[in-house]
């Protein structure tokens, strides 16, 4: 069973909660996916008792899943650290999906700021889930700061491109055989999720591909199945590709017709 910072999760799918057509569809999609954890965020609350945040938080609590707050939208170490502390205050968890964004167009992580923010937050007792690239040196630094989980992107957030550098992901798995690795960002299709699970990744975190599907509940179910299928395939031992044909039907005893 997947274990993250000492917490065992029955599912290897983590689902985002943004961009769904309605709160009811969000709740149904989460349930259909079988996800063990959902990501949430923080934003400015409107004055005047709007209570929008309260309604959303009540919905999330009713799902009875693990909550992974994020620092989405933060572009500096200071922003990310303060947001993480505020998230811990509200959500009552020391889990934090740490995002320090470095580029407006690609939303790729500022890996230098990420490492520094991870140092501060790990030292403050947070269980840091860093949204990072597939760079091995950055991964080493994050582990050195105290991260026990790594969350590399496989493509830019929301792009739906799927794994654009399978070789790098495979290399990451090979270099860190004992570190939980979660592919976060860029997954567009269930087949993408299955592929990274076949590579041996421990879990998948996605949002847009489900939330923006024509039928989010059906897509959530499809992703749940894909993650399970990919994991079981990895554990069952995949056949390595070959350049030559090998007959699957035995040739011994085959009739010879002149």
């Amino acid at each position: 069973m997947l274990e993250l910072y000492g917490t065992k999760l029955p599912s290897r799918l983590l689902l985002g909660t943004a961009q769904y057509p309605s709160p009811a569809i969000l709740a149904d999609a989460v349930k259909a996916s079988g996800a063990s954890a959902v990501t949430v965020s923080l934003r400015r609350e409107m004055a005047g008792g709007g209570r929008g945040g309260e309604k959303f938080w009540s919905l999330i609590q009713s799902l009875r899943l693990h909550v992974l707050p994020n620092t989405a939208g933060c572009h500096s170490v200071k922003e990310a650290v303060t947001t993480a502390k505020m998230a811990r205050e509200i959500f009552g968890t020391n889990w934090i999906k740490l995002e320090v964004i470095g580029n407006h167009d690609t939303l790729q992580p500022d890996v230098f700021g990420l490492v520094e923010a991870a140092r501060i937050l790990c030292g403050d007792g947070f269980a840091v889930f860093p949204y990072t690239t597939d760079d091995l040196v950055v991964a080493e630094r994050l582990l050195g700061m105290g991260c026990k989980v790594l969350m590399p992107w496989c493509a830019p957030i929301g792009s739906a491109l799927g794994p654009v550098n399978v070789t790098a992901l495979r290399s990451m798995r090979g270099h860190f055989p004992d570190v939980p690795l979660i592919v976060d960002a860029g997954i567009g299709r269930p087949s993408h999720a299955a592929l990274v699970m076949e590579l041996g990744f421990d879990a998948v975190l996605l949002n847009t591909a489900v939330a923006r599907a024509a039928e989010p509940v059906g897509m959530a179910r499809a992703f749940g199945k894909a993650v399970d299928a990919g994991r079981e395939a990895y554990r069952s031992g995949l056949l390595e590709p070959r350049d030559v044909a090998v007959p699957s039907t035995p040739t011994i005893g085959q009739a010879v017709f002149q």
């Binding site: 961009q19 400015r44 929008g52 945040g53 309260e54 922003e79 929301g158």
Partner: peptide, 30 residues
């Protein structure tokens, strides 16, 4: 001013002219 003020500290936390206050609540996130 970019520093968390715990809920339990708000009653005693003195504001001063020019302070920047952020008030955040849960919302959807990916």
């Amino acid at each position: 001013n970019s520093e968390l003020v715990h809920a339990t500290e708000r009653t005693l936390f003195q504001l001063k002219d020019g302070d920047q206050i952020e008030i955040l609540s849960p919302m959807q996130g990916g």
